[in-house]
Design a protein around this nucleic acid. Sequence first.
DNA 1: TAATATTATATAGCATGCTATGCAATTCGA
DNA 2: TCGAATTGCATAGCATGCTATATAATATTA
Lengths: 141, 141
Amino acid sequence: MTSAGYLVNHMARLFADELRKRIAPLGIVPGQFPALLVLWEKDGLTQKELLALLDIEQATLANTLTRMERDGLIVRREHPADARARTIHLSEKARAIRDSAYEAAKETNEEALSGLTDGERQSFLDCMSRTITALQEGGSS
Amino acid sequence: MTSAGYLVNHMARLFADELRKRIAPLGIVPGQFPALLVLWEKDGLTQKELLALLDIEQATLANTLTRMERDGLIVRREHPADARARTIHLSEKARAIRDSAYEAAKETNEEALSGLTDGERQSFLDCMSRTITALQEGGSS
DNA sequence: TAATATTATATAGCATGCTATGCAATTCGA
DNA sequence: TCGAATTGCATAGCATGCTATATAATATTA
C-alpha cells in the first residue's frame, strides 16, 4: 500500500474530509469549493464559462450547481441573449462566507503540510503539478 | 487552483481514470484494487479481517464486496464458527488476472511519475506519506 | 441462564465524479 | 429561409466514498 496511486487516493480522501469538517459550519461542502472560488472572483458567468475554468466534466458541474441552488448558494437567471443558457449568481449567503471559507481552506492545507519544510512544500506542489501534466498528456495522445 | 488540496483532488482523479482505462480489459475497476491486492496475498479472510488491512470504512468495503461478487471476482462462504461472518474467496477469474493487474498498476504509476527523477519520486512518496500522517493525527486528536 | 451488550455485516441516504444520452435553442449552409 | 448540425444544459445510470442505522448472532454479566 505504498504505491503512488494508493497514496494519492488516500491523501485526497483525507484532504476532502478535513476540509469538509472545517467548512461544514459555513453550509458548504468540498465539491462546491472550486465553483465558489471562481464565482467569488467573477459573478454572472454561464455554466459553460464556469466549466472552462474548472477541471471537472460538464455533467458534474451541472449536478453541483443544482445542489448549490438547493442550498441557497446561487441563483440562476435566464441569459439575456441565449435561451439555452443561464447566468449564475452568488447569493448574499455565499458572498458572506467568502473570507471564512478561504481561511478554512488555508488551515486545511496548513495542517496537511505541517510536517514539511517550505522547500519540501514547494517541491511537493511542483511534483503534483508535473504528475497532473503527465497524466493529462498521456490521455490526450 | 494551485493549492495543495485542489492539486491532490485533481491528481487523484487522473490517477484513478488512468488505472481504470488500463484495467478495464481485465474486468475490474479501481475501487476493487485494494481488496484484490490483499486477497491475492491471503484468501479466505472475513470482511473484518480484510477491513483491518485497508484504509476505507466498513460500509464502503461491504458495498465493494457486493460488486465484486456480482462481477464474479469473489465468492463468500459461511464462516465455520460464526454465523454472522462470511469468508471471502477469490474466483479463478480473479486469480488469473493477478499478474496483468499488477502490471497495469505499475504502468499507471510509471506514466504518472515519468517526469520525475528517482530522487524526486522518493521524496514525493515521502511527502505524501507524511501528509497522510499529519491529516490522520489531526482527526484523531 | 435470561437480559444486555457487543460484534459482523448490510442497508439507507448522500456527495462527488464519470460517461452516455436527451432536448431545446441556436447557428450554418445550401 | 429551411433543414441539418451544433451548442448549452439536464438527466440517467453507475462507481466510490462517507455517516448513520438496522439486523442478526455472539458474548457477557447479573
